[in-house]
Amino acid sequence: MLELRLTRAGLLKKVLESIRDLVTDANFDCAATGCSLQAMDSSRVAMLSLLLRPDGFEHYRCDRNISMGMNLANMARMLRCASDDDTVTINADDAQDKISDYEMKLMHITSENLEIPEAGYEAIVKMPASLFARICKDLGTIGDTVMISVTKEGIQFFTRGDIRTANIFCRKTTPVAKEKEAISIEMEKPVSLTLALRYLISFTKATPLAKQVTISMSYGRPIVVEYKMEIMDHIRFYLVPKVEE
């Protein structure tokens, strides 16, 4: 038996809106420790992982682990019927073929689950989520890829298009900066990665979920773009960097 109740449907709506461009169908794996989701985009270049902690819900009951395969567009369509401050309840019985209230069909999705190490990145930048979103959107009008370079001074975004180049440098702020404006850098060594902008732009759909975004980078590893939610834990996006052939 699974029972989840959230008094702010808006939060779940925001979570769904932030992932449904990237992934069409996904398994919500619910356990006593929380609801998690891990899914790759259709081209298998990007991936997301999401954790919704039990204490983020007003009521959370999960008697045994259950994996609910859902079509995210359908789920979003149903949740659109709820106002942001409405209460949403998700029940799934052990038959596992529907969630009641919404009577939405569940799907059987075979997906590969990957073990993702959390630590050991060469550079970790925290910056305002809205600033990162604006940079990605602006650069997306110019080029297809962006080179993100982190040094101890700051983070640089460089793109090249058919007709012009663009270069944005965000300097690390002082420790006294206000949280919503702060840019902090933890770095072992400078890192520079080239990434497809359309995926980064898709990740920034999660901007309404958090004030700050954490960008973790290492040479030769997927970049991690993490949004930490106030009450629900996190959503992380992974993207494989482009390499010169």
């Binding site: 790759m40 081209s43 298998r44 270049v45 990007a46 991936m47 590969e112 689950n113 990957l114 073990e115 993702i116 190490p117 890829t145 080239t194 497809a196 590893r221 997927p222 992974y238 993207l239 494989v240 482009k242 390499v243 010169e244 052939e245």
Partner: peptide, 14 residues
């Protein structure tokens, strides 16, 4: 020319 690899190359299966 730039090459794009798939993400599962970078992580082990659970």
């Amino acid at each position: 020319k730039q090459k794009q690899q798939v993400i599962s190359r970078f992580f082990a299966s659970k």
